[in-house]
């Protein structure tokens, strides 16, 4: 446990340094990754600072080139379709989306977009959960919520090899998703994944993780990174060439 805390502390330090170094912000997107979050009528932004932590982590540990600023979009925003990965956070029940907004999200997903939804309430059958399921039943009427298999789905091996689910509070020991041809277009966590990244001004994690503490946080961080990388590489890690390596590593662990 001490080792994990130590590693995380070192990592926080590096992140802070990197934040200081990232003084120049790119205004042009180009081929850079943009953290795009949906603003809707309701409590859409429970963790306003979380994007910076996640983006810095991705920049330091992977080859992803990121724009440091978060992009907040509404469903009638032109920029929505400039970001193929959309993050939807929430804690509470929210009103029914307008017909045009439902149509927009349908087009977004059909055009190749991927949506990650994180229920930050930490409760089973929360108001947010009910509202999300209601809306996606409208957005993808033929879509079916499925549990993403931990042994097979590329989201659990797109960068880190994962066997468990992380989050602030383990409500479900699985991720759910809706598949479209060739990809999982909607990924849904009910474990308040993003809360595990949130820090106070002194750089300490603000929320504790239960029941497994820091180990659970570590898994949440890795799972978050995997979800982002899945949006950028798709089913890459299911390719035949990776299988022997992944199997051997999983076996070793």
């Amino acid at each position: 446990m001490k080792k994990i805390v130590f590693l995380l502390s070192v990592f926080c330090f590096l992140l802070s340094v990197s934040c200081l170094l990232t003084t120049v912000s790119f205004t042009q997107q180009g081929d850079r990754f943009v953290f795009t979050q949906l603003k809707y009528q309701g409590n859409w932004d429970p963790y306003p600072e979380v994007s910076r932590e996640i983006l810095n982590f991705l920049r330091l540990t992977t080859s992803i080139k990121v724009l440091p600023e978060r992009r907040v979009v509404t469903l009638d925003d032109e920029l929505l379709f400039s970001s193929p990965f959309l993050i939807v956070l929430g804690q509470e029940f929210f009103p029914v989306l307008k017909g045009k907004e439902v149509e927009t999200l349908n087009r977004y997903l059909k055009g190749g977009g991927i949506i990650f939804v994180d229920d930050c309430s930490g409760e089973k059958r929360s108001g947010f959960d009910k509202a999300i399921r209601r809306e996606f039943n409208r957005i993808l009427p033929n879509g079916e919520w499925i549990k993403l298999p931990k042994e097979e789905h590329p989201v659990f091996r797109s960068f880190y090899l994962l066997r468990t689910i992380g989050g602030r509070r383990i409500v479900n020991n699985y991720l759910e998703g809706i598949n479209l041809p060739g990809r999982t277009a909607v990924i849904y966590s009910q474990n308040d994944l993003f809360a595990t990244w949130v820090k106070d001004r002194l750089g300490n994690y603000l929320y504790s993780c239960s029941p497994a503490g820091e180990t659970q946080r570590l898994e949440a961080i890795k799972l978050t990174a995997n979800i982002f990388i899945y949006a950028l590489t798709g089913t890459y890690k299911t390719d035949y060439i990776h299988q022997p390596f992944i199997k051997e590593k999983m076996h070793r662990r």
Binding site: L7, L60, T62, R157, I241, F245, K249, R253
Partner: peptide, 25 residues
């Protein structure tokens, strides 16, 4: 039939966890 290789991590990137926890080849 597609065979692809994506550079997921550059030499200058930090290894956050031991190599056996990464899916990199």
């Amino acid at each position: 039939e597609l065979v692809s290789f994506v550079i997921l991590r550059n030499p200058e990137n930090i290894a956050f966890v031991p190599d056996d926890q990464l899916s990199l080849i």
